[in-house]
């Protein structure tokens, strides 16, 4: 029983991180059509920024974390303006910005290594590393923080898309970019906002993960892979798909790690196997997109 409860916490925690990474892809992908593989590096940069704001400057946790996320959001917006927008405005095929952003992975990574070094750096947790005792289970404090913050972020993003006019504008651009432009939606602003938002969401995953593992300039790639897998599993369309995809992926990984009669290290193949499986059997994912993409 204890094992199952611990696993449930572990699945919610990891599922939250994966869902945020999937959401970072989605927020950029839906209005622009661009798969941005640099989301992992955005998580890395935010975790390093939190080393500076929380570790070196000793800011209180919330202002420090917000400052780190603002920093990476600004980088996201700048990236869009400096590298993606010129290509789009020149009528380049969609593959061009995807490749440019793939190149930006290296730029971000090298910049992080140059700026913060190659050593693992500690990020202080907001509430320490104690445990909350709840009857038969003790929930690690940082796990509770990860679950709560990722839940709030995911719910907030869902509300943004579903309940605000800005969110509707994003949806409109996703459904028909040309028509949305003709209706007066500022496509440039939507693109810039999607990159800034995507960076902030990926950054949140990085800032939540870093206290558990440390900030390291190579931490982005595994997060990017898990996020992309969750996106494919959940469906490249809606916030609910990211949440579901993240949770399904985390559950499969953890159940394989715990109960499959194979070394736990083999769980590294679970995201890729699931991704292949979904692409073959259900390419739209568990929850498909609304309207035309």
């Amino acid at each position: 029983m204890t094992d199952l409860l611990e696993l449930a916490v572990s699945i919610l925690e990891a599922g939250g991180i994966y869902a945020l990474m999937a959401l970072a892809y989605l927020v950029v992908l839906r209005p622009t059509g661009i798969i941005n593989f640099a989301v992992g590096e955005w998580a890395t940069l935010a975790s390093f920024f939190s080393v500076a704001t929380l570790g070196w400057w000793n800011l209180p946790y919330i202002p420090g974390a917000v400052l780190a996320l603002a920093g990476v959001a600004a980088i996201g917006a700048l990236t869009e303006q400096a590298t993606v927008r010129p290509m789009i405005e020149r009528g380049a095929p969609i593959l061009t910005p995807i490749l440019i952003l793939l190149g930006m992975v290296v730029v971000y990574r090298e910049a992080a290594a140059l700026g913060f070094g190659t050593q693992n750096l500690r990020v202080p947790p907001p509430l320490g590393f104690g445990r909350i005792d709840l009857g038969p289970i003790a929930i690690p404090m940082q796990s509770a923080v990860v679950i709560a913050v990722s839940g709030i972020m995911l719910a907030g993003t869902w509300a943004f898309f579903e309940r605000t006019i800005w969110g509707k504008a994003f949806q409109a651009v996703a459904i028909d970019r040309v028509a949305a432009g003709l209706m007066g939606i500022n496509l440039r602003l939507v693109a810039a906002f999607s990159f800034a938002g995507g960076a902030a969401i990926a950054g949140t995953a990085g800032v939540l993960q870093a206290p558990l593992t440390s900030a390291h300039y190579l931490m982005g790639l595994p997060l990017a892979i898990k996020g992309f897998s969750a996106l494919v599993i959940g469906g490249v369309g809606r916030v609910e798909g990211c949440i579901l995809g993240g949770l399904v992926l985390a559950a499969c990984e953890r159940l394989v790690m715990r109960y499959a009669p194979i070394p736990s290290g083999f769980a590294i193949g679970v995201p890729l196997l699931l991704m292949i499986l979904f692409l073959l059997v259900r390419p739209t994912g568990l929850i498909g997109a609304r309207g035309r993409t």
Partner: peptide, 13 residues
């Protein structure tokens, strides 16, 4: 047990 690079949680292991 082997931990994969980039693992976010080692509770199951």
């Amino acid at each position: 047990e082997t931990f994969e690079r980039g693992v976010t949680d080692v509770t199951p292991a």
